[in-house]
Amino acid sequence: MSLSLDPRTKVLFFSSMLALAFICRDIWAMIALVAASLAASLVEDDKTMIKKGLKTMLPLLAVAFILWSFMHEWSLFQNYGSGVDFQLGAFMTLRLFLILLVSLNFVSAVKPGELVKALDSFRLPYRAVFILGLTLRHIYTIADDYRAIKEAQASRGLELDKGSLITRIRNYVPVLIPLFVRSIENAEKLTLAMELKSFTFKRRRYFKGRLRAIDVAVIAALIITLALSIMHYWLAVI
């Protein structure tokens, strides 16, 4: 988010939006949530991933609308009655759209390091948080290795995407085996790098970020919205 919110605020914002997607049960509330999420994605610096993700998911949303409008009576989760119900179709499609949008926003706005810092500052066990961070960091390394091996094999005449499904799977063996070996090698290098940095789980980590006024305002708004939604939809007191 280019509003440069604190990572903790970002994590709370996206978790609350996901929670609200399941708490709210009327279409107007859902429209308001989608609008808020769209606004959040508009202030995003790089919208490429969000645009690409939503484009891929469009057919899924269309299928969801048709299924929920015409075939809701066979739902495994709840009895929605029988007959055609376009409002239910629209509500469920909006909910699915909201979940996808929030997830894409989250991946795009919260960098792995920020997520780790935020979870750490919530006082989760450092061992678990650090391993999560290493895993997230390692995903980039594995992706890089995968690309390099694929390029090397394709440049040497290995056709990867031709033939039947079985042939294609077999074609990928010379890519996947070296990738597996490389990952083990990288893990070894990583343990060496950790030793060279005198790493230990016992040391305290410091989170430098300070919540600013805008963070406090966003968190307060989230708490109020969540509380009102729970009181309205679950407890029915307002």
Binding site: A148, I149, A152, Q153, S155, R156, P174, I177, P178, R182
Partner: peptide, 12 residues
Amino acid sequence: AFVFQDPDKHIT
């Protein structure tokens, strides 16, 4: 034929 920059990554 292409000889890549970082052989560690490309030798399989």
